[in-house]
Simulated scan of single mutants.
Amino acid sequence: MAVQLDSDEPRLFQTGEHACGYFPERRARDLVLDPHDTRLDALYPLALRWGFRRSGNLVYRPHCLGCHACVPVRIPVAQHTPDRSQRRCLARNDDLDCRVLPAERTDEQFALYRRYLAARHLRGGMDDHGPIEFDQFLIGDWSQGRFLEIRAPGDPGQRGRLLAVAVTDVTANGLSAVYTFFDPDLPQRGLGTYAILQQIAWARRSGLPHLYLGYWIEGHRKMDYKRRYRPLEYFDGRHWTTAAP
């Protein structure tokens, strides 16, 4: 179902119902910007401000009947101060090397991605992802994405072992944390937290105002962690506010 706004304005499509990725007993649907619109790269920064998210070439926002659990959130990076746990995470990983690279898949990255999925999302619908699915999901055709690689210390002149990759979109309105995968055998390092803290630092160095974190879901064990980053701004469908829904 398409919603035509104006001949010059983007079209929105409403998907049919599908399985919810967060609550197995629920059904979900989304609003999607016309995936054939040649202006998607220009529309995407505005769409982030409207609470949308990117997955591959799709720019979408949950639009479920009777459910408003998915709340868009972002961090105003200039105001962020790490809490005690986050400061410990930074200190614990002070030996790691972080580099921002073009969003181009390598065999090393893909091998880590497969290990991460097997450990964290077994039978979650992504088990059979190959190189093509990796590119379709994380890179797409038009996004201004980058890979933030996080590596262990290496020998002089050598790169250390790849520990994590934070897939990040770069826009004029801020960075958007698309997806992060990391070594599942190093829980003590807190690599997911460290990746977000490095993205905050990256946005601040670049003079960008926000890091978009996607959707916060209150009480959901995989999504509620986003509340630990303060201050956190929430989108209510019209305005961004620091007051949680």
Rank of each mutant, 00 (worst) to 15 (best):
V59D: 03
V59I: 15
H63F: 15
C64L: 11
G66A: 12
H68W: 03
H68N: 10
H68M: 05
A69C: 09
A69D: 10
A69E: 00
A69P: 05
V71L: 13
P72F: 12
V73S: 09
V73W: 02
R74P: 10
I75C: 00
I75D: 06
V77W: 02
Q79D: 14
H80N: 09
T81W: 14
T81F: 12
P82E: 07
P82L: 03
R84P: 01
Q86H: 05
C89M: 05
C89R: 06
L90C: 11
A91W: 09
R92F: 03
N93L: 01
D95N: 06
L96K: 08
C98L: 13
V100E: 11
L101E: 15
L101N: 06
L101Q: 13
A103K: 08
E104S: 14
R105M: 15
T106A: 04
T106G: 10
D107S: 11
E108N: 03
E108L: 02
E108W: 00
Q109F: 05
F110R: 10
F110M: 00
A111Q: 03
L112R: 08
Y113M: 09
R114H: 07
L117C: 12
L117H: 10
A118W: 02
A118Q: 13
R120K: 15
R123A: 14
G124V: 11
G125W: 08
